[in-house]
């Protein structure tokens, strides 16, 4: 699939934009943390779309945010 672009997102409704990003983000997160992928993706979708698009292109940025989300999730569940 071609990379998700800001112009592709711009033509969609806000909740559909998150859906489009989530569909791209989920497999990447699933590869890192299969059991928590749904929750981590849900958390990360609260981030601005422009930053989410950057994370889709940058594994380092994505990994850093996934680790942050994991820490928050573990703190929440404790």
């Amino acid at each position: 699939r071609e990379p998700l672009s800001a112009s592709m997102l711009a033509s969609a409704l806000p909740h559909v934009q998150k859906q489009m990003i989530g569909d791209r983000l989920y497999p990447l997160i699933y590869a890192l943390h299969s059991e928590l992928a749904g929750k981590i993706t849900g958390m990360l979708l609260e981030i601005d779309n422009s930053e989410l698009l950057h994370m889709l292109e940058s594994p380092e940025s994505l990994n850093a945010k996934v680790e942050e989300a994991l820490i928050m999730l573990q703190a929440h569940q404790a």
Binding site: H15, K18, Q19, K39, G42, L45, E46
Partner: peptide
Amino acid sequence: GSSVNWPPEFHPGVPWKGLQSI
């Protein structure tokens, strides 16, 4: 607490409702 529903969970191919309040 009452926050057991956080965070909203994403499922591929299922319409995302995490931001329904917008």
